[in-house]
Amino acid sequence: MSNPYARIARDGLWDNNVVFAQSLALCPLLAVTGTATNGLGLGLASVFVMVTAGVLVSLLRGIITPQVRIPVFVLIIAVLVTLVDLGMNAWLHDLHKVLGLFIPLIVTNCAILGRAESFASRQPVARAAFDGLMMGAGFTLVLVLLGAVREIIGSGTLFQGAGLMLGEAMSFLELTLIPDYRGFLLAILPPGGFIALGFILAGKRVLDARADRRAARALDGAAPAA
């Protein structure tokens, strides 16, 4: 993988995914993913914080000394999250009513501090921003996937409330997949989140194992020819 940006994208979305590979950020993940829409909302807020935090930390990496870096990173992230919280409360109020409890949890999202420490503080601004974007996108992917699985099993719908969050234009996303569904509460409650996440992680490993096998076979096939 010669291109560093391709590497960053692959890491963030799949290989070193916040949830799949690092098992971080489980608290907000399990708390909000009752519906796909809530997952998307928290994901987008997280992306914003991760990109901005990455840029700021990278910009300031010249003047921050190793001794005080952690409190400074925490301060930066906390300010960003508080501003997002205030902004959403003021201008995206309906979404804030749903996610309000969890927005402050982004501060405790160790993935953000982790990326600031291990990536942004030692990379140029553009790469740090791209890394924040990709890590955030990978996190959002899991949030939406888990939210969709739990929403379908739990209430038989998909992207309920999307119109409320993204504007009326997006309300076509709201689907009722199973009409007259009785609902399966377990899926929406936290234990159901753990169970669903477990199955999704297992699914990821199956896909990885299959890809490895295919790569090995391709290598075997290529060797005699060369």
């Binding site: 003047i63 921050i64 000394t65 001794q67 005080v68 409190p71 400074v72 301060l75 930066i76 906390a78 300010v79 508080t82 501003l83 205030l86 902004g87 409360n89 003021a90 201008w91």
Partner: peptide
Amino acid sequence: QAGLLGGFSMVAAALLVMGNIATRDAI
């Protein structure tokens, strides 16, 4: 280092005050 930390804290506090003022009425 103390100045660095103090400076960041002051900037952070200023940003939060501004954010609060900007959103208070709307909230």
